[in-house]
Simulated scan of single mutants.
Amino acid sequence: MSHLIGYARVSTRGQSLEHQHSQLVEQGCARIFEEEVSGAKRDRPELTRMLDHLRHGDVVIVTRLDRRARSTSDLLAIAELLRASGAGLLSLAEPWADTTTPAGRMILTVFAGIADFERSLIAERTSVGRDAAKSRGVKFGPKLSLSPSQVARARELLEGGRPVSEISKIFGVHKATVYRALGQG
């Protein structure tokens, strides 16, 4: 037997879940999971509890898709989790987002394709941009703790008999940094 399950979320403590709750009750939700947490946070305990609670045939109802997901890719990932558990998704504000119908599933499939295409474009642009920056001499990664002249001076000090612990204190870095800079790490 399928159940209507509600999910309500507000971003800040100053906002109220009351309006979403009443809309979900009007729809006949048997259980409503509510949380006050930013959608940008990955850790949404009530969303996780709701996903664990779902059974085959259940339909998750949200008042708006932005209450459910942080981004298109997040929405698609959650929709896939629902599909895998045999549950559907219905948004009250976006009637096209109804995975209990063939048309709604098709729309989400098209969105998944668009999101995948966008991810590949972003990866390609990032790669091209990184390669162009490298060809201009841009260095990636953390800033070096010791400049080339400091490395040369550290080498001189080491060859002069100074211990690495003393050299690290002179330059205000950890001993491991001196060892790495001198190629001895």
Rank of each mutant, 00 (worst) to 15 (best):
K175Q: 15
T100C: 02
A40S: 09
S135N: 13
G183D: 02
G39C: 15
S135R: 06
S145V: 13
I78E: 08
L182Q: 06
L90W: 10
S168E: 01
R125S: 11
A103S: 10
K143D: 05
A103C: 08
G113T: 04
G137H: 04
E80D: 14
G113H: 05
I107E: 09
A152I: 03
M106I: 13
S38G: 06
I114W: 13
V128G: 01
K143G: 07
T100I: 15
I167R: 01
S165G: 08
R180T: 01
G28S: 13
G160K: 01
A84M: 12
L89H: 13
G6Y: 00
I61W: 09
S2E: 07
G6L: 05
Q15A: 02
E156I: 13
L157C: 10
H19T: 15
T48V: 15
I114M: 15
E35D: 11
S120N: 09
R136Q: 12
V60T: 07
L146H: 00
E159F: 08
R153L: 14
W96M: 05
V110N: 03
L47V: 15
V151R: 07
E94A: 12
F111E: 14
R68E: 07
L17F: 10
G88N: 05
D131R: 15
S135V: 08
E36Y: 10
S135H: 08
R13M: 13
L54E: 02
L82P: 03
A97R: 04
A176F: 11
D74P: 06
A84N: 10
L54R: 03
L121E: 09
G86V: 09
F33R: 13
S73W: 02
